[in-house]
């Protein structure tokens, strides 16, 4: 069986894996509270995503530079303190840029430094092998979180408001249930499943193209096998 196209696709889209179907949000349920609860509009989703990036970057950079000098019992305390300092700076800047966003986010803004993605990345840093690799992985995973956050914010914002950037959609029909956490769970599950499905479809198409024409299975071959036609 030839796998040239499949191997080329897998080799060239390694970066896409960390953004989509291998994203730590959809594979390991990391940093979920912000996605499930706080992404009820595109504004709040964008703010959460930006805050997550601005809080995580100093922690990850410090881990890369001086991580080995921090004793293991003190590392959650040290990195948590750095994350909180970054969060207070984001809070101060946010009060100046978007003051109304904090009242709607409630306590979830203050949970950003306590998110599991940061602490798991820091704990498992040494297992990755080369020094630069965990930082690269962490940055790709952060990008994946931002992507899913914005996607969920967009979908839920359109469903709650019935409009897309002030343009009415579906005759202004809105679904206010999209505001609640249960919808966040369901939407996240559908996004995770859809990403995996797309990846599988691409692999199946490339696999079919790799095989010689006479060896390709016909479309819907399983149904035709059941009927005894093939």
């Amino acid at each position: 069986m030839k796998l040239d196209r499949c191997k080329a696709y897998t080799r060239r889209t390694g970066w896409l894996r960390n953004l989509t179907w291998k994203n730590p949000v959809v594979t390991s349920a990391l940093s979920l509270p912000f996605l499930v609860v706080s992404t009820y509009s595109l504004n709040s989703a964008a703010f959460i995503a930006a805050s997550m990036v601005l809080v995580s970057l100093p922690v990850l950079l410090l881990r890369r530079l001086i991580g080995r000098r921090i004793p293991a019992p003190f590392s959650p305390v040290f990195y948590g303190a750095v994350a909180f300092a970054a969060l207070m700076a984001v809070r101060w800047a946010g009060e100046w840029l978007m003051p109304t966003v904090f009242s709607s986010m409630g306590i979830y803004f203050y949970l950003i430094p306590m998110n599991s993605f940061l602490y798991l990345t820091i704990d498992h840093w040494e297992e990755a092998g080369s020094p630069g690799r965990p930082l690269r992985f962490a940055l790709w995973h952060l990008a994946g979180f931002v992507l899913i956050c914005l996607l969920m914010g967009l979908v839920r914002g359109v469903l709650v408001g019935g409009a897309f950037f002030q343009e009415e959609l579906f005759g202004g029909l809105s679904f206010s249930g999209a505001y609640y956490p249960f919808f966040g769970f369901v939407l996240l599950g559908m996004i995770a499943g859809a990403m995996r499905w797309l990846h599988r479809v691409v692999l199946v198409v490339l696999l079919r193209r790799d095989q010689p024409k006479e060896e390709r299975r016909p479309l819907l071959w399983r149904r035709r096998m059941k009927r005894g036609e093939w």
């Binding site: 390991s28 966040g184 769970f185 369901v186 599950g189 559908m190 995996r196």
Partner: peptide, 9 residues
């Protein structure tokens, strides 16, 4: 995880 998210929802 996808079906687990649906279950949690």
């Amino acid at each position: 995880m996808p079906v687990l998210f649906l279950y949690l929802g």
